[in-house]
Nucleic acid binder design. Structure first.
Lengths: 244, 244
DNA sequence: TAAATAGTGTCTATAAGACACTATTCT
DNA sequence: AGAATAGTGTCTTATAGACACTATTTA
């Protein structure tokens, strides 16, 4: 091992315990799944937070989540926690990444696998809106800091990832109802990108790209009706949707 | 809970054990960090695999990795394992995602956090090349299947992610030496994208984008010398590089 | 008829892609 | 002189962005 390490990466063998290492020799970490749930309210991107009722971080706001059970996949755990803590199901879940710094949870070593979910603005019926206190939507640019654990970091990363994906994926589908107007769709894009878009250019792009297709239907209201559109491709990946 | 679930996502409270759940009530999983190490050899993208010496999957090829220790971050664990198993350090590591299906490891529940690393083609000195048998480079389109655990899936996902990132990041930096010719750089892009690129268009793009800048130096060989370039921005994120 | 929202077209600038030959060095 | 690799420019096409007014409905 006397090769010049600053000039060459070497592969000469070093003491290798990976084949013989006994996992039970070290305390195992707990593993949780946390879910960042986005929706659009009044043209602003919001996340759902729950107020913690117990130590640690009692009374502070946190991303919903919980422990992964021995017999379920990480995706299943995320779906289950989402359902248990918020009653939401049938939502597209996307894994962000794992967060696992020692000390991020004062109880014990906890590694969390963070997910993001998008739910349509017209289908949000949050009981806590009236009930208040224990579950609330917060605009992503107006969060109650500090959050529990390292949830500030997770939310920052989730938002960065979301914005990155906006341009190259049909990511807005998850935030829109089945049928929607082009104005609603533009609102979603503007909220996600954080900047205003030109109406004519946006519509040219949305229609020209074949992303959406017109339904016959129209909206009603005290003003000119708008045509309703739907997404053209099937695209909701089966694996991401809970059957029931 | 009598609202029409097919029409509305509801947030009415369901039995919620997340606040009172005792993590020690369930067996905790083991957590590992696995690293997919890419390099370019003879214009083809290769990954480093090691042959397992012990049960399970004894004798089959696997991605290097090992258990995360209680006092280290996930990133540190990945760097340590990379160093221990291959002697490589000072490499950019990027977390891919966690893989944690029950049963992916026959020993016990093991959740792995997968990383990707890129190392430059000219600095690869793999002892096992002559020694053989226990650590080898494989072209990504010619892998020894089946691999151990769910490593087929991890490699497929890593490659998908790598190709996705090629277009929008300076990802090739990790695969190139400090100084390189534009032909070498084009080789990297072609290997990663899996298709040939036009030489003139590539050079126009590489130079015009300000990504690289010429050094004064030239190569030598039995043919016309080529100008050597280097990346313009500092850009290697400090957190990704092991200091020593 | 006022308020509110929907809907529509052109021009310009930039980026990406197709395409083939000459230049330099060494043996 | 031949082998090997480096290096170079134009035209076309597609895409994104700037930019402002008319249309329809209900109260």
């Amino acid at each position: 091992m006397d090769r010049d390490r600053s000039e060459y990466y070497t592969f000469e063998k070093m003491p290798d315990d990976s084949q013989t290492y006994d996992p039970s020799a070290f305390a195992r970490p707990s593993v949780t799944a946390d879910i960042v749930i986005y929706t659009l309210r009044e043209k602003r991107l919001h996340v759902l937070l729950i107020r913690r009722k117990a130590w640690p971080f009692e009374g502070t706001w946190a991303i919903p989540g919980g422990f992964v059970r021995p017999d379920e996949t990480l995706d299943q755990a995320a779906k289950r926690e989402l359902r248990e803590e918020t009653g939401v199901s049938g939502v597209v879940l996307e894994q962000l990444r794992a967060f696992g710094d020692p000390g991020r949870d004062p109880r014990t070593r906890v590694i969390t696998v963070a997910y993001t979910a998008l739910i349509p603005s017209d289908r949000v019926v949050l009981r806590a809106d009236t009930d208040a206190a224990d579950a609330r939507w917060f605009a992503v640019d107006d969060l109650p800091r500090p959050l529990a654990f390292d949830h500030d970091e997770i939310l920052a990363e989730a938002l960065r990832s979301l914005r990155e994906r906006v341009e190259r994926e049909n990511i807005t589908r998850g935030l829109l109802p089945v049928r929607f107007t082009l104005t609603q769709m533009q609102d979603v894009y503007e909220a996600l990108l954080g900047r205003p878009l030109d109406k004519r250019n946006f519509r040219k792009w949305a229609l020209g790209s074949g992303l959406v297709r017109g339904t016959g239907q129209e909206t009603r209201g005290p003003h000119r009706p708008a045509l309703l559109y739907e997404f053209a491709s099937p695209s909701l990946r089966a694996a991401d949707v809970v059957p029931a």
